[in-house]
Simulated scan of single mutants.
Amino acid sequence: MNTVTVDNTRITPSKIVCVGRNYVAHIEELGNEVPEQMVVFGKPNSAIGHELRSSLGGEPLHYEGEIALLIESGKPVAAGFGLDLTKRRLQTTLKERGLPWERAKAFDGAALFSRFSAIEDTTALSLQLWVNDELRQSGGVELMMYPPAEILAQLSEFTSLEDGDIVMTGTPAGVGRVNTGDRFTGRVLQGSRLLAEQSWLAR
């Protein structure tokens, strides 16, 4: 089983629960409709990776930077930066056919994470994603259609979050293709305080 690091402790998430279409600007950039209900999909533990790949099986991968929350006793106790990697072309085909997204979203290595840092609450959380020293994505809980408390309330209606599970809270505008040699740096802040930072070199 794959692990993530919370402060200096290794944690094994049983699953990753992802919220889609949580920022209006991101919905608009992909030409999607604003959903009537919160969009939820999952990634298994096997999706946790450490290497940022630019393609898989001959298909380019696209990046989505997100605030990731680690859950304990049903509450977020730590936050980190997450990269949700997507086979966008395949995802589009599956959506057009009304089929599930797992092949495009839940493959091995489809979720990369920084170290997680302990938090007392989710107020003032924000993210930044820099690619080749250019700021590509930024946003925070104040821009979410479903902020963390609402995400957890809705998830509790149909699923149980085990200790160590990760919730990925959606991506702001600025997503794009991963190119070989690109340098990615993701940051999560709480107010002006840097909580987590991670860099990857796309291969």
Rank of each mutant, 00 (worst) to 15 (best):
175 V>H: 03
159 T>S: 11
139 G>Y: 00
138 S>T: 14
169 T>H: 05
139 G>D: 03
135 L>A: 10
163 D>I: 07
158 F>T: 12
135 L>D: 10
146 Y>Q: 12
165 D>Y: 01
167 V>C: 09
135 L>Y: 07
171 T>A: 04
145 M>C: 10
163 D>T: 11
160 S>M: 14
132 N>I: 07
157 E>Y: 06
133 D>M: 07
152 L>M: 10
144 M>A: 04
149 A>I: 07
169 T>G: 08
174 G>Y: 02
174 G>H: 03
137 Q>A: 11
145 M>N: 10
153 A>F: 05
135 L>P: 12
164 G>F: 02
148 P>C: 02
159 T>R: 08
169 T>P: 09
145 M>F: 10
141 V>S: 02
134 E>W: 06
140 G>D: 03
158 F>Q: 08
148 P>E: 01
154 Q>K: 15
156 S>W: 02
164 G>M: 04
173 A>M: 10
160 S>D: 14
145 M>V: 12
166 I>Y: 02
166 I>Q: 05
135 L>I: 12
155 L>N: 05
154 Q>R: 15
150 E>I: 14
132 N>W: 01
134 E>H: 12
150 E>P: 10
167 V>T: 10
143 L>C: 09
155 L>C: 06
172 P>F: 00
172 P>R: 01
170 G>L: 04
137 Q>G: 13
161 L>A: 09
144 M>Y: 01
133 D>K: 11
155 L>D: 05
174 G>C: 06
168 M>C: 13
144 M>S: 05
131 V>D: 02
133 D>P: 09
174 G>F: 00
148 P>G: 04
167 V>H: 07
133 D>Q: 15
141 V>Q: 00
158 F>C: 11
166 I>N: 06
132 N>M: 04
156 S>Y: 03
160 S>E: 15
151 I>L: 01
175 V>W: 00
157 E>D: 14
163 D>S: 11
160 S>I: 15
139 G>A: 04
139 G>K: 00
157 E>Q: 15
141 V>W: 01
137 Q>V: 13
138 S>F: 09
133 D>G: 11
151 I>Y: 00
142 E>F: 09
132 N>A: 06
139 G>C: 04
169 T>C: 11
154 Q>Y: 10
135 L>G: 11
151 I>C: 03
147 P>I: 03
171 T>S: 09
134 E>V: 15
148 P>I: 01
150 E>N: 13
163 D>W: 03
143 L>P: 06
164 G>V: 07
158 F>G: 15
156 S>N: 12
152 L>D: 10
158 F>H: 12
132 N>T: 08
157 E>K: 12
147 P>V: 04
131 V>Q: 03
169 T>I: 08
156 S>D: 13
158 F>L: 08
152 L>H: 09
154 Q>H: 14
151 I>H: 00
168 M>A: 14
170 G>D: 05
171 T>Q: 03
140 G>Y: 01
138 S>E: 14
164 G>D: 04
168 M>Y: 09
175 V>P: 08
174 G>E: 04
136 R>I: 11
134 E>N: 13
147 P>N: 04
158 F>P: 09
148 P>Y: 00
157 E>I: 05
144 M>W: 02
132 N>E: 05
145 M>P: 07
141 V>M: 00
